[in-house]
Design a protein around this nucleic acid. Structure first.
Lengths: 166, 166
DNA sequence: CTTGAAATAATGAATGA
DNA sequence: TCATTCATTATTTCAAG
C-alpha cells in the first residue's frame, strides 16, 4: 500500500522542501540527472499524490495572527461526527481538524489575532455547533517549527521503503 | 509591529498558496501587473519574512507515516525550558514544539509510522529527556486539512491591516 | 511600475541504454 | 522503463524610463 521512493526522489523532495520554486535545472544539477528527467519525476510524485501541492510557508505572526490555539472538543454523540466536522470546516481561522483518541474527540488547530478574536471564534463559531459538549482551549505561547523535519524523515524513509520491497 | 499587505500582495499569497510554482507570468496576469513587478513583490514579501519559504506539501501517509501524534509534556521545572526544547529539536519525527498554557507545558507534534515507531520515539527519545515529568500521547485517528484556510485568512487580514493603519 | 531585450529555463519529440 | 539530447517555446532577469 505504501509508495516507494528511490534515493533521487527523496533528495528531490528534500530540495523542494527547502525551496519549492527551485528550477528544474538546479534540481537536475543537484541530483545528477537531466532537466526533463527531473520534471518527469516531479510529475510522477504529484500524480502519485505524494506531493499534494507546492505551497508557501507564511509567517502568520507577521500578519497579525500570532497565536496558535489548540481546541479540544468533546461531543455528546447525538450527532454524526461527519456533521460536526463539516460544520467546523466552514469556520474560518481553523487550519486543521483531527479526530483523536483520549479524553476528547476532536482537536482543532486555529490561528487567532488576539483574545477578542479567540472569543469570537469560540462563542460565535464553535459553541453553536450542535453536538458539542465540552470545549478546552490550549494556547501556544510560543511555537517552534522544526526546519529539518522533512529532511530527517525523508532520510529515514527512503532507504526503508527501498529495501522493504523485498 | 504588524506588516501591512495590500490587496495585490494578499492575492499573490493566495495564488502562491495554491501553487507555489506558478510562473511570474501567470501570477502577473492574475493580478493585472507586469512580471517584474510581481517578482519585486514576492522578493519584498520574502525579505520582510512574511513568506518564510516555498515548500512542498507532502502526503506523509503515502510514505508510510500515516499517524499524527500530539504529545503533551509536563516538566518538573528542574531544567530550563530552553534546554528541554533544544533536546527535543534534535529528535526526529518531531514536526513542531509549542510552549502552551493549561495543564501541561509543552505540546509536541510528531509523525509516526506505527505503534512500534511511536514506542521508539517515546521510550528512547522523549522519556530520556531530563526534566520531563509526565507524557500524554494523543493519536489522531484521522486528520482533515482545511485547504481554504490560507485563502480565508488572507481575505480577512488584508482589508483589516489596510484600513487599520488610520 | 512598465517596457523590451538578453539570458535562462521549461517542454516535447525523437531516441538510446 | 527510465533517461538523454536537441530544438522550440516560455519564462525570468535586467536596464532604462
Amino acid at each position: 500500500m505504501n509508495e516507494t521512493l528511490d534515493a533521487v526522489d527523496a533528495r528531490l523532495l528534500q530540495l523542494l522542501d527547502q525551496d519549492g520554486r527551485a528550477s528544474l535545472r538546479s534540481l537536475a544539477d543537484a541530483v545528477g540527472l537531466s532537466g526533463p528527467s527531473v520534471a518527469d519525476r516531479i510529475n510522477r510524485l504529484t500524480e502519485r499524490g505524494i506531493i499534494r501541492r507546492f505551497a508557501v510557508d507564511i509567517d502568520w505572526a507577521k500578519l497579525g495572527l500570532p497565536t496558535l490555539a489548540q481546541i479540544a472538543l468533546l461531543t455528546d454523540k447525538t450527532q454524526h461526527i461527519e456533521n460536526i466536522v463539516t460544520r467546523l470546516r466552514e469556520v474560518d481561522r481553523i487550519e486543521e481538524i483531527s479526530i483523536v483518541t483520549g479524553t476528547t474527540d476532536l482537536l482543532v488547530r486555529a490561528r487567532v489575532a488576539d483574545l477578542t478574536d479567540l472569543r469570537r471564534l469560540l462563542v460565535e463559531k464553535i459553541w453553536p455547533v450542535e453536538g458539542i459538549q465540552r470545549v478546552e482551549t490550549t494556547l501556544a505561547v510560543e511555537t517552534i517549527p522544526i526546519p529539518g523535519f522533512t529532511a530527517n524523515l525523508l532520510a529515514d524513509i527512503a532507504p526503508i521503503n527501498e529495501t522493504s520491497r523485498s
